[in-house]
Amino acid sequence: MAAHIPLAPVESSTEARIRTLAGDLKQQPGALLPILHAVQDTFGYVPECTAAVLATELALSRAEVHGVISFYHHFRTRPAGAHVLHICRAEACQSMGSAALERDIKQLLNIDYHQTTADGSVTLEPVYCLGNCACSPNIRLDDAVHGRMTLAKTERLLQLLKEGQA
C-alpha cells in the first residue's frame, strides 16, 4: 500500500531481462516455476526484484511469488560460486559412507553447506538422491553426476575444474 501510486517505470536491466524471460512463457497456465528456472538459469540465482517483476507479469502478488521462491530449495536468492557441488546425503549413499565423504569434502573446501569457497569457485550444497543409488556414494558437479565417489576422485575433479577441463 505504501507504493500505492505506481511511479513512472524506471527499469533496471535485470528487471527488463526477467520480464523478457517471463514473456516467453507467461501465457502458459502455471508458468511460474518454468519462469523461475529460466531466471535462475540466466542469472545463476533469483535476483531480489524477481518477485515484483513476475507479480506484475503473471497477475500474482509479490507475496505469492516470494512464497514460491522461498518454498523450493532449488532456487537460490544469492549468487553461487562458479561451480556448484552437490553431495548426496540420502540413505543409499549413507550406506556407502557418504557421511565421511561429506565431512572430508567440507574439510577440503573449508566450507559448510550453502557456502562458497573463498575464491568463489565452488558452492557446496546437499542433495537428497541423484537416482544413481547403485553406484553410491554420489556427488553432482554442476549438471554431471559422479558415482562411486571417494575423496581422491573428488580432489581430481576439483583439480580438473581448476584446469578448466571438467
Partner: peptide, 12 residues
Amino acid sequence: SAGANESFMDSE
C-alpha cells in the same frame, strides 16, 4: 510473510 518478506507497511 507480508509481501516478499517485507514489513506489513511496505508490503501490498
